[in-house]
Computed example of a mutant assay.
Amino acid sequence: MPFALPAYNEPDFAALSGAPLARFEAVITPGVAPDGYHATTIFPEYFQLAPQRWIMPAQSRMDCVVVRRGDELDVVEFRRLAPGDMVCVGRRENGEDGIYVHTDPFGSIENAREKFAFRTRMTRESSFSIDYDELYDLLEFERENGFIVWVLGPAVIFDHDSREALTRLVEAGYVHGLLAGNALATHDLEAAMHSTALGQEIYTRRTAALGHYHHLDALNEVRRLGSMRAAMEHGLVKNGVMRAIHERNIPFVLAGSIRDDGPMPEVVADCYKAQDAMRNVVRQATTVMAMATQLHSIATGNMTPSYTVTGGSIRPVYFYSVDMSEFVVDKLANRGSLSARSILTNVQDFLVTTERGLRKRQH
């Protein structure tokens, strides 16, 4: 059965007929919201601007405030607030303050459960066969109809087969945006130049002689040439994920870290500029695949609402978290990304399995 997006269920606005209009107060101090501000969630939120006229911001993210600009609403980070901005105030979310947070926009599909049952939480013991099949359906649909953002840690590069699988996923059109740190690009280029990652051969795991220099040599050479693209044009980078990304002009953001070596010239060192660049990519996302990076996954989760508006229609944003650690996926949910689905497995195996499964479907 072909994949189909779930229908959006609008709130029952008739039941909110007695609700007051949403209130807005002016910002006085730059970057400081008025007392009693309303903080956004991952869910669709409606604000009554006139009697029976409920408006939903088209683009949102959690832990921000809502600024009224005429008849439109903008979801804004605190640091962007300027004097005179009119910020929504009110902390009751069921209409009492003219604010309605819609927590079940696509209808919950829950299996009937016994009051007492085993294995009701996702763990490393869970079976994931159906998750893979559902993911294949989703990615095939999104390749043609959506925008798939991958959030990746360097572990996906440390294995020969997973690096090849990820490169093929890029080439096959399943990657529309990439968010990562300096390490992913650095070790991908190290693999292209030296067939190692952090000095260890990516297929045999043998430690190369003076291998601890390899990622530094790769960084140094790219910095000498001025960019990764220049290194590719000079023939130093003939394969890999970043080459495939560049060849297809896929947008990517490499967010800097305090522990970075080098870093690569393309790394965004200012954390707030990196956040802005990441959000510009996330705004387009309809599916997010986050794997093997706790901090980048949580950061992206904080920027990703549970919905997006495309072509005038409201649809869900799917968020997958893939990691070996239950702690990582639990922490993502604990930081507010309640809609994230987890697959607990080695990400290298996950990439190989996913690419192979999608490729088989094409034949």
Rank of each mutant, 00 (worst) to 15 (best):
F3W: 08
N9R: 15
N9T: 07
D12P: 10
S17V: 10
S17A: 10
P20K: 01
L21T: 06
T29S: 03
T29K: 13
T29H: 08
D35G: 11
D35E: 14
T40A: 00
P44V: 00
Q48D: 06
A50G: 05
P51V: 09
S60E: 06
C64W: 07
E72Q: 15
E77D: 14
F78D: 13
D85P: 02
C88R: 10
V89Y: 00
G90D: 02
G95S: 04
P105V: 00
P105C: 00
G107I: 04
G107M: 04
I109K: 15
E110N: 13
A112M: 14
E114T: 09
K115M: 11
K115R: 13
F116A: 08
A117T: 11
F118G: 09
S127T: 12
S127I: 14
L135D: 03
D137V: 02
G153T: 02
D159K: 09
H160P: 01
D161G: 03
A165Q: 09
T167L: 07
L169C: 08
V170H: 05
A180N: 08
A180I: 08
H187N: 01
L189S: 01
A197Q: 01
L198C: 02
L198H: 09
Q200A: 10
E201T: 01
I202H: 04
R206H: 09
Y213R: 15
G226Q: 12
M228N: 04
R229V: 04
A230N: 12
G235M: 10
L236M: 13
R248A: 02
P251I: 00
R259I: 10
V268R: 11
C271H: 14
K273T: 12
Q284W: 03
N302C: 09
S306Q: 14
Y307H: 11
T310R: 14
I314S: 06
P316W: 01
Y320N: 03
S321N: 11
V328R: 15
A333R: 15
G336T: 10
L344W: 09
T345I: 12
D349T: 14
D349L: 13
R356V: 12
R359Y: 04
R359Q: 11
K360L: 12
